[in-house]
């Protein structure tokens, strides 16, 4: 007797899987990774590897020994979280700190909610914000970029362009003078500035983002709404008072805005399900980012903005339903 297989329709499946999506995102992060390795050298490599390995390891250990599940590290989501966490911290962060951050990301932000797909907040950002609040000094002393260096100790640290502007304005310096101190736009685009490991090169991140769009891993709604709303809001401020508020283009190429808009906010698990919801979500992220950058205590606000908007995703999902056929 030959056993036939019986299953419900459909009987064919698109060539897609969670694993493919996760590794697609990891591949798209390669340009930004190479830029960071170039500017921050060996320390960035060590930090990134540590984060990836420790996230995968924590996921495996917790799932296997605490939750008693079948470990799912094969899907690549823990590795992606590790990679994004490393991209969001300064490259000279002590290695043990990134391990603590990984534990918070995987253990608290992801697995305590039930694992992949059930976490309300972006795990990498939770880990990052945890580190930022716990170790503010280490998390805000950024090494200045230099062409590939293997030195781990004598790095020169300095503020990020956003930090220069924020501190300067607080002291009452003129904006035009401050703009002299930050790198020019070409260097900002390429990533030749102080900042977290993966966020520095807007250009590399945009290349990766285009790859994601091309592969249809993300849709355009969140990045466009995020970047667009941040730009418009900053432009309005700048237009109202060019002396006090910086050029909107400056906001787009500095700090974690590109990384946030293309990779952190577009995290499928923690973003809305419908195009309309995504637009509102992205716009909220952009506006809160600029609010924090301009009026808040911190020079950078992308992480907080995304986490705040993560919290309203269930509401957005309720409020914005897809357009029904025949209604």
């Amino acid at each position: 007797m030959n056993l036939l297989t019986v299953s419900g329709s459909p009987h064919v499946h698109a060539d897609q899987s969670v694993r493919k999506i996760m590794f697609g995102v990891i591949i798209s992060l390669i340009p930004a990774m190479l830029v960071s390795f170039y500017f921050f050298g060996l320390s960035a490599i060590i930090l990134t590897l540590t984060a990836v390995v420790s996230c995968a390891l924590f996921e495996f250990l917790i799932q296997k020994y605490i939750l008693g599940n079948v470990p799912t590290i094969g899907d690549g989501s823990a590795m992606l979280t590790g990679l994004l966490l490393a991209f969001n911290v300064p490259s000279n962060l002590p290695v043990w700190m990134i391990i603590v951050g990984s534990l918070v990301s995987i253990g608290i932000a992801k697995l305590s909610f039930g694992g992949l797909g059930k976490n309300p907040f972006n795990p990498a950002l939770v880990g990052r914000v945890f580190l930022l609040i716990s170790f503010p000094v280490d998390m805000t002393s950024w090494p200045l970029p230099q062409s590939f260096s293997t030195s781990l100790t004598d790095v020169v640290t300095g503020p990020t362009p956003l930090g220069i502007v924020k501190e300067g304005l607080k002291k009452g310096d003129a904006l035009t003078d401050l703009m002299q101190q930050v790198p020019d736009y070409v260097n900002l685009l390429l990533g030749n500035m102080g900042g977290s490991v993966g966020e520095i090169s807007a250009l590399a991140l945009i290349i990766g983002g285009l790859y994601l769009l091309f592969k249809r891993i993300i849709s355009w709604h969140i990045p466009v709404a995020f970047i667009g709303s941040a730009f418009v809001f900053a432009a309005v401020l700048n237009f109202a008072n060019p002396e006090a508020y910086v050029n909107p283009f400056f906001h787009l190429v500095t700090g974690g805005l590109m990384l946030g808009a293309l990779y952190m906010a577009t995290d499928m698990v923690t973003s809305p399900m419908t195009p309309a919801g995504m637009l509102v979500f992205g716009a909220g992220c952009g506006i809160i980012t600029i609010l924090i950058r301009v009026f808040g205590v911190y020079p950078e606000g992308v992480s907080f903005a995304i986490l705040i908007m993560n919290a309203v995703v269930p509401l957005l999902n309720k409020a914005f339903k897809p357009r029904r056929f025949g209604v």
Binding site: L3, V6, S7, G8
Partner: peptide, 19 residues
């Protein structure tokens, strides 16, 4: 003994409607 192999959602109510 099984004469076919079922490969869908593990739910009796579905299987009952399927075969």
């Amino acid at each position: 003994p099984a004469k076919v192999v079922f490969d869908s959602a593990s739910r009796c109510s579905f299987a009952h409607s399927l075969f």
